[in-house]
Design a protein around this nucleic acid. Structure first.
Lengths: 384, 384
DNA sequence: ATAGTTAGTTCATTGAACGAACTAACAAAG
DNA sequence: CTTTGTTAGTTCGTTCAATGAACTAACTAT
């Protein structure tokens, strides 16, 4: 809060009204007035502006709440007022997703491509221009572009990337100037956390743990993404599991991700060979045949992951922890096994769930970032 | 933000002006207007109210900023407008502290006493009444009472206490009704964190780790105390250091505090005997004589604590971590030894410091809670 | 003494929220 | 079919607080 003038109060109340309509709509003006403690007069005036700008529209007459009385005119977010475009920059692919303002997916696509620092911005620009040709006609067009990075992002700038070299690449400014569209970048695990917050959880405090090559956590605290003083929060793959354990490139020994990242687990399974696309399926079927070595492997991984999760719980005490991992999703009982290793009373009331959004989490979170920015609302909760 | 009416804007601006005067004072009206982007007219009006209510007073004419021009009337928090009373409820003592509104200590005292659930509230009430007799005459008297609890507190209610049985004891309501003074309770480590935030740090994100019988962390995120979905955040003593290590009452095995709480370290030193008041001094002098067993003990403790701290850093990435521990304060090089065990690049830019407030941290933090509530300001930063 | 500058106050104007009174539109009962 | 009671939504004069502009106050340097 930098300062508050007489226009700020109107902005805040517009935000409040819009948040109510987006998150609890369809709602009548009267219902909004009741839920917000704003007067009917104020709500009427604000809704007039929101409908004039096409963000909200009247979807018809609702049922009368009790017997008698005028029936309400229901208001809803005009989800077709614009679209949001999201990118996920993997080390050998670019995934994209186009959604309406409620996160409804219009189209998705994956381009297989080795990421190159020199050409990345041009490539993204071309994809955007292609999309601009084909998107449905809307009032606002593409309202924002959010780009998921597999690395540390702070203050819309790339700090560190382990798999490709994009550090300090000025995507937001360059692309924003060329396209005239607000551009945001954010860490992939953080976007997954925002997706869970938006589409599948009502907790104010939640953590989403992404497990693939490494292990990273996205952290929502009091309804807002938390990234730490310099963007390095949630680097929980580098929690130390074994003092004096395996050396890790980060400088530590015995880091969690040396033992139970997806990559590490698969390498244990293949006994050091390079995992391929089919390795997970093989692991799964070996597990289903009750291969004792594989059972032991999974049991051990569950135990180690539980220790990592215990360490997250003791730090954050969130309402829920989501796991975004192909292994915990594919291997039956994996999640239950992790749970049975969580013995401390501190973990008692913390829900542990597989991500309901799966591979789409990152892009859906990215879309939520663009949309929230465009609508100037802080919270967005949508049932899918 | 529940709703915003036309009075809210004035409240917010009052808060903004008061925060500036408290945190950057003495300031002139003109300086406040510049720093806040409020108009001079608005600042004048708000300051009129703040001086009428005795919260702010004019302390005289300042120097002219440049050459020429009317000299400014300097404004300052009227720190003698009231006093704040703080309690720290140990398992065998009650410590109290009385301060002015800037945290200046008027008097401190410690009552040795085994805590008893049945008599605690009466005992506190009597202490308050005693203080009310002797406190200096002020406009507002005791503006708030904040009570530090060694246990988990959530939403002004005691959830869990390991050393004494105070769970669900309704201190705030009962005492508040009897005394007509706002009562707050909060966890001891959390109050230490608030103290560091108020009196010795400018980071938005900080952690204060209290090490005694157990190990607990107070966490400030984006300038606000974070306690988790149910108050259990910062229970980092129950991070798992050794998978399959020593059993801990919490249900885990190998918890950090089984190896490097003050209690555990002293027990290693006394080889299992009950530590006494003088044990720390003995440990220190043994360390100074370079007793190889003690050196090894400290080296090992430093290594383990570094692992615990690494796990805090990977989770929170704060700007600074404070250690509130008699051992790291007393034993030379202990802090440096911990630091030299922090090898990961993730720890690179995170400051590690001994608490500058020491034993007074908890009570000073408590006083900050009362004062911030009374002044209705969110942030308070005071140079001591 | 004068000119220039900064501090602080006064006042008419303005934006926005509000309550009260109004219109619109309905259901149920007679 | 009319009346009554109720809810939805709009209109309008009032009120509050922020604001810029003009003012006074008080100072320094020349």
């Amino acid at each position: 809060m930098v300062f508050v003038d007489k226009y700020a109060i109107r902005e805040m109340n517009e935000t409040i009204v819009l948040e109510h309509i987006v998150n609890q709509g369809p709602l009548s003006r009267a219902a909004v007035a009741n839920n917000t403690h704003l007067s009917k007069a104020s709500v009427s005036e604000i809704v007039r502006k929101l409908t004039e700008t096409n963000l909200v529209h009247e979807i018809g007459i609702g049922d009368s709440t009790t017997s008698g009385g005028r029936r309400p005119i229901m208001l809803e977010l005009n989800k077709h007022a614009g679209v949001s475009l999201s990118f996920d920059i993997g080390y050998n692919y670019i995934a994209t997703m186009l959604t309406y303002l409620d996160g409804e997916i219009i189209t998705e696509q994956i381009i297989e491509d080795k990421i190159n620092r020199e050409t990345l911005i041009d490539k993204i620009e071309n994809v955007v221009i292609d999309y601009q040709q084909m998107i449905p006609k809307t009032s606002y067009g593409i309202v924002g572009i959010t780009i998921a990075i597999h690395g540390v992002v702070y203050d819309n700038s790339i700090v560190f990337t382990p798999y490709y070299d994009l550090a300090k690449l000025n995507i937001c400014e360059v692309l924003g100037n060329r396209l005239g569209i607000p551009i945001f970048i954010e860490n992939e695990a953080n976007l997954s956390a925002i997706a869970e917050q938006t589409y599948s959880s009502n907790y104010k405090n939640l953590v989403s743990i992404s497990i693939h090559s490494g292990i990273g956590a996205g952290i929502i605290i009091d309804g807002e993404l938390y990234t730490g003083e310099r963007g390095f929060s949630g680097e929980i793959g580098h929690k130390i599991l074994f003092p004096d354990g395996k050396p890790c490139p980060c400088g530590n020994r015995g880091c969690l991700e040396q033992y139970c990242s997806e990559k590490s687990i698969l390498e244990f399974f293949t006994e050091g060979n390079q995992p391929t696309e089919t390795t997970i399926a093989q692991l799964k079927s070996a597990y289903l045949t009750k291969d004792p070595k594989v059972t032991e492997l999974i049991d051990r991984a569950a135990k180690y992951l539980a220790i990592g999760i215990n360490n997250v719980t003791t730090a954050f005490s969130p309402g829920v922890i989501f796991l975004k991992s192909r292994l915990t999703r594919e291997i039956p009982d994996f999640l239950e096994k992790i749970n049975s290793n969580l013995n401390s009373f501190i973990n008692e009331d913390v829900e542990l769930r597989n991500s309901t959004l799966g591979d789409q989490a990152t892009l859906l979170g990215a879309s939520a970032v663009s949309i929230r920015n465009f609508l100037r609302i802080k919270s967005m909760k949508i049932q899918r």
